[in-house]
Amino acid sequence: MTSSLTRMVARALLAPILVVALAILVKGYANVGDGFAAGVVAALGVLLQVVVFGREAVAAALPLRWAPAVALVGLGIGFAVFAVPALLGDAPLEHAPAPGVSPVHIGSLELITAVVFDVGVFLLVLGASVAIIDAIAAPGEGEQ
């Protein structure tokens, strides 16, 4: 149903899309980007595969059925950023390291709580979007 050209382009695009998503995720602190946008872009990559190859083929190659678990892990990470400072006696969502203290750098990436939180958001958005794509794609194929 799809031409070989579409299939080839779709296959070739998956890896770049995921790399772009990661780039958007890690750039978010010095430049434009954040976890939500990254999650949506990555989910779009998966959607492209599902549209072109069909759900069965994609499910064989990618772990689609773990998507809800990924979303919940993301939600859990977000919650941890909210709760851990509260349990340690600070205000919920307390920023660490404190303002003014120089954080640990990996290249230009700064390791701060906001990054952890954004990774949670990324996983949540990616997982939930893929779960929806999967759920909507699933029964439709057999019925039509």
Binding site: P85, D90, A91, P92, L93, E94, H95
Partner: peptide, 9 residues
């Protein structure tokens, strides 16, 4: 009334 500012801001 009770108050709490999130994030220690």
């Amino acid at each position: 009334p009770q108050e709490l500012v999130a994030g220690g801001w």
